[in-house]
């Protein structure tokens, strides 16, 4: 997920070429306070006129407690991007209020309520504590994400490269998302020149259960894909497992062994997920 500042035409018009799974056109923190109107209008014109190819387009609006949140919704909701991302979500109640406002705008424009997702950003201690309710409060909540910089600021601690201060938050947010079967996206890695650091942090994100990671520079995309995409060995092994599974299923056997290791249902499910990521199909 690539962050693009909402008032930067050069970056907005090229957003689709980097192969990011999704783009976050940002009206919030990346836009100066006196350019909020300009960014809103620019994003409105570009969403409808620029080809973003296979990347999903999300828009991060300003919080409703600011003078800009409502105007952002009025401009963006009618365009129905893939998702609207709401910053600094702290309670399920405020997210439900946001969704009410969105659906009111959708009603006015004769738009269905099931197309655009809502993504909640967890960036405060209160949000972390309430994340289970936030993630499950409405069917339209399609993903939750963690904002590391804001969270450490809210906790009044310094953000360290090892992520120690937000480790609990990361895992709590992942668990809440998994419980509700929605996506969960890790925070950005800020040092764009530190490729090894990015790789290490992304490997950790993957290990603890995040389904993706946000990036602030297109140069970071390939490394994240390399980490998240299954390796050739993983794909080969998954292919063998699923193939064996179908063979054994025909014979009515549920649990079997490959190379002396027991293969049961959860391992098969995981292997099927790997093949899905890799776009490989196994004939039954």
């Amino acid at each position: 997920m690539l962050y693009i500042p909402g008032n930067n035409p050069a970056m907005l018009q090229q957003g689709g070429v980097y192969g990011a799974d999704s783009l976050l056109l940002d009206l919030e923190d990346a836009v100066a306070i006196n350019q909020k109107d300009a960014a809103r209008i620019l994003v409105k014109h570009l969403i409808t006129n620029i080809n973003y190819y296979d990347s999903e387009v999300c828009v991060r609006i300003n919080h409703l407690s600011t003078p800009f949140g409502k105007a952002d919704l009025e401009a963006i909701v009618p365009l129905q991007p893939h998702a609207i991302r709401y910053p600094k979500t702290e309670t399920a109640k405020e997210l439900l209020e946001l969704i009410d406002m969105i659906e009111e705008i959708e009603n006015r424009h004769n738009l269905a309520h099931n197309k655009m997702e809502i993504h909640a950003m967890i960036e405060t201690a209160m949000g972390v504590q309430n994340v289970f309710e936030i993630a499950g409060c409405h069917i339209r909540v399609g993903a939750i994400t963690i904002g590391g910089q804001d969270l450490t600021a809210d906790m009044n601690i310094i953000y360290t490269p090892d992520g120690a201060g937000i480790d609990f938050a990361r895992k709590r947010i992942v668990m809440a998302a998994k419980a509700h079967h929605i996506d969960v996206i890790d925070t950005v890695f800020v040092d764009i020149n530190d490729e090894e650091g990015l790789r290490r942090e992304t490997e950790y994100s993957k290990k603890i259960g995040f389904t993706g990671k946000a990036v602030i520079n297109p140069r970071q995309i390939d490394i994240i894909h390399e980490v998240y995409n299954p390796t050739e060995d993983e794909i080969r092994r998954a292919y063998r497992i699923v193939k064996e599974f179908y063979k054994n299923k025909e014979a009515g056997i549920g649990v079997f062994a490959i190379d002396g290791k027991m293969i049961d249902a959860p391992i098969v499910t995981r292997a099927q997920y790997v093949l899905e990521l890799a776009g490989v199909s196994v004939g039954e």
């Binding site: 035409p9 018009q13 209008i41 620019l42 014109h45 006129n49």
Partner: peptide, 15 residues
Amino acid sequence: ALEPVVRARLETAIE
């Protein structure tokens, strides 16, 4: 600037 950018900036300035 591309055409949609021109339109957006004009809209902003006029508003």
